[in-house]
C-alpha cells in the first residue's frame, strides 16, 4: 500500500519552491512561544513546536497537560494569550479557524465533525461543494472523492453510503480525506484512535503513515503510547503546559517518554525499575 502512495508522490515542500529542497530541516510550520491561561490555570506556557514536511510529530502528555489547548490553538479555534506561528518565514497569528486553514493547518477533531446521514462525497465536500451553474456538480465531486480516498488507500465500500454506516476507521479516513481537500501543509489529528478497536486503530495508523509519505506534516495528538511509537518520527512531551522533552522516536525508549510525561526524571527511571 505505502509503495503505491510513494509512487505518485510529490510533496508540498517540492511545490513550495526551494523550501524543502534547500534544506529538508526547514519546518513548514512553527509555533513560537505560545502561552495561554484559562483564568488562573496556565494551560500552555511558552510552547515551541516545529513541524516538518514528511514527518509525524506526536504530542503526548497526561490529562490536563495542555494537549487539547494546543490543538485548539493550532486549529485557530482558540486565540492564545501570547505567541505566534511562523509559516514560510513569516510570523502570523492564528486568529480564526479560517486563517488557520488558509495558512495550511487542517485539523481533524476527535468528534470528526461528520454528518451521519450524508454520504461520503457529501461529507467530503461539506460546506465547500463544487457547483456547475446553480446546481451541485455531483460528478466532479464524486470523481474527486474517489481520487482522494484512493490516495489514502482508504477502504470504503462506496462513496455513496451514508457515513453513519461506516466503521470508526473508515470515518476517520473520510475526515482525514476532507482535511486534505483543503490542500494543507500540516494535518493535526486529535486522538484519532481513541474510540477504535485494534484492527481499526492499525488501519488509521497506516493512514497516518500514508499521509506523511505523501509529503504532509502530521501532528498526532494522542495519549496511546503504542500508537505513538508505531508511527511517530518525533515525540514532543507536554507536562503541565510546558514542553518537557522533544525526542527522536527511534532512539528513545518507552520508559524515557513515560518519565517525561509523568515528570519523573529520565535518569531516575531505570533505577526505580531496578528497585522494583
Amino acid at each position: 500500500m505505502s509503495t503505491q502512495a510513494r509512487g505518485g508522490l510529490t510533496g508540498p515542500h517540492d511545490l513550495g519552491d526551494g523550501l524543502g529542497a534547500a534544506g529538508g530541516d526547514e519546518p513548514v510550520i512553527s509555533l513560537r512561544g505560545v502561552s495561554h491561561s484559562y483564568g488562573a490555570v496556565r494551560a500552555l506556557v511558552d510552547v515551541d513546536l516545529d513541524v516538518h514536511a514528511r514527518e509525524v510529530v506526536a504530542v503526548v502528555g497526561d490529562n490536563g497537560a495542555g494537549k487539547s489547548t494546543l490543538v485548539n490553538v493550532m486549529s485557530g479555534v482558540l486565540v492564545p494569550d501570547a505567541g505566534e506561528v511562523v509559516v514560510e518565514g513569516r510570523e502570523t497569528q492564528l486568529r480564526s479557524p479560517g486563517v488557520a486553514r488558509q495558512l495550511g493547518i487542517a485539523t481533524v477533531f476527535q468528534d470528526l465533525a461528520l454528518c451521519e446521514d450524508l454520504d461520503v462525497v457529501e461529507n467530503l465536500f461539506l460546506g465547500q461543494e463544487l457547483r456547475r451553474g446553480p446546481l451541485l456538480d455531483e460528478v466532479a465531486m464524486e470523481r474527486e472523492a474517489w481520487r482522494l480516498l484512493s490516495q489514502l488507500a482508504a477502504r470504503v465500500p462506496s462513496v455513496r453510503v451514508p457515513v453513519g454506516d461506516l466503521s470508526g476507521g473508515q470515518r476517520q479516513a473520510v475526515a482525514i480525506a476532507r482535511a486534505l481537500l483543503g490542500e494543507p501543509r500540516v494535518l493535526v489529528l486529535d486522538e484519532p484512535t481513541a474510540a477504535l478497536g485494534v484492527t481499526q486503530t492499525a488501519e488509521v495508523l497506516r493512514l497516518v503513515e500514508r499521509v506523511r509519505d505523501r509529503g504532509y506534516g502530521v501532528v498526532l495528538v494522542s495519549h496511546t503510547m503504542p500508537d505513538v511509537q508505531a508511527v511517530a518520527d518525533r515525540v514532543v512531551v507536554l507536562r503541565r503546559g510546558r514542553l518537557n522533552g522533544d525526542f527522536d522516536a527511534d532512539r528513545t525508549s518507552y520508559e524515557e517518554i513515560i518519565a517525561a510525561i509523568t515528570g519523573a526524571s529520565p535518569a531516575r527511571r531505570p533505577r526505580r525499575q531496578e528497585d522494583a
Binding site: 509512487g7 505518485g8 510533496g11 495550511g104 484512493s150 490516495q151 483543503g182
Partner: peptide, 20 residues
C-alpha cells in the same frame, strides 16, 4: 472552491496502481 489548484501537494495518483 476550485479543484486542487497548485500550492498543495500534488495528488494525481498513478491510477493504474490503485484502481483495478
Amino acid at each position: 472552491m476550485s479543484t486542487r489548484a497548485g500550492g498543495g501537494p500534488e495528488v494525481s495518483t498513478d491510477r493504474s496502481t490503485t484502481v483495478p
